[in-house]
Design a protein around this nucleic acid. Structure first.
Length: 291
DNA sequence: ATGCAGGCGCGCA
DNA sequence: TGCGCGCCTGCA
């Protein structure tokens, strides 16, 4: 990989295993929107970034060398060798190999812990476009205005203090539905306990999940997602309907319960479970497996 | 119009 | 410990 600054952009050459569509549409994030030119624009830490792949070059637009090295390199997990991960998983079985060939450019983003906590509470029993809308509403109403890009205004995700200004009704008005009370009690608890949930990264995966499940609105699947996407616990395996379908299609014939499918996967994929889940989820959802 | 998708909390066994 | 129900919204 080689990169350099040009105008207001970083140009990256030889960036292996990087495909914007795969990264932003594999179910891990909700705030990256597709532009007309097939690039994606999103927000992280009060910065707006546009990502575009053209031929073999990747462009990080609206940024500079300093932010690339201090923020985006880590956010996009560019220090991790995905070729190696893909090789190990591909060698496990033909199904995983097929899924990886399909979603070859997936990378698991290192997202903000607090934002993932609230975002995945919103995700429960909900569809992706609606989750995106609710998160955007909360950010616009309670986050800070950051700036505009390509004619769109962007807002930071509200901090616990900012979100705590919203009543249950205010939260409901942001189209969160019946999850309004979960968001309210979770925010209040974080404020009252002066809890920085990013510290959960330092816990073991088991302890991390145990703590997350104490929040109202966080069950097994949502907890796994927060641990994986917000706390980089790669040895976990969120099982939603899509993952259940693809697992039954590929590995398990009987109609096992979700916890049993989860255990089966973690026993099989080990420390690479989270990566395997992403390749399988993307494959299942894009192809409508088992619907 | 009505039926459906989606995961958690709760009540019940 | 494991099940079945109700929750809310947007779309077909």
């Amino acid at each position: 990989m080689r990169y350099y600054e040009q105008d207001n952009s970083i140009v990256i050459e030889n960036i292996g295993d990087f495909e914007p569509k795969h990264i932003f549409e594999c179910g891990q994030c909700f705030r990256w929107i597709k532009e007309e030119d097939d690039s994606y624009t999103g927000v992280f830490r009060d910065k707006i970034l546009n990502v575009k792949k053209e031929n073999d070059l990747v462009y990080f637009n609206n940024t500079n060398l300093k932010d690339f090295e201090e923020i985006w390199y880590d956010y996009f997990d560019l220090g991790t060798d995905y070729s190696k991960i893909k090789r190990i998983l591909s060698d496990m079985d033909e199904y995983l190999k097929k899924s990886i060939e399909f979603g070859y450019g997936i990378r698991i983003l290192k997202q903000d812990s607090w934002e993932m906590l609230i975002s995945f509470i919103i995700s429960s029993n909900n569809r992706i476009p609606m989750i995106q809308k609710a998160i955007n509403n909360l950010s616009r109403e309670y986050g800070k205005y950051i700036g505009s890009y390509n004619g769109e205004d962007y807002y930071s995700f509200p901090t616990p203090e900012e979100l705590n200004k919203a009543s249950i009704e205010d939260i409901r008005n942001c189209k969160t539905g019946f999850r309004d009370k979960y968001i309210k009690t979770t925010t209040e608890r974080v404020i009252n306990d002066n809890d920085d949930v990013s510290n959960y990264r330092n816990l073991s995966t088991e302890e991390c999940l145990k703590e997350l499940l104490k929040f109202n609105g966080v069950g097994a699947k949502v907890g796994d997602c927060i641990a994986l996407f917000g706390m980089q616990k790669m040895d976990t395996f969120p099982v939603d309907v899509w993952v259940k379908r693809v697992m039954q299609e590929f590995y398990i014939k009987e109609d096992l319960s979700l916890p049993k499918i989860r255990k089966f996967a973690i026993d099989k994929f080990g420390d690479l479970s989270g990566y395997a889940q992403q390749y399988l989820f993307y494959y299942a959802r894009e192809l409508g497996i088992g619907r």
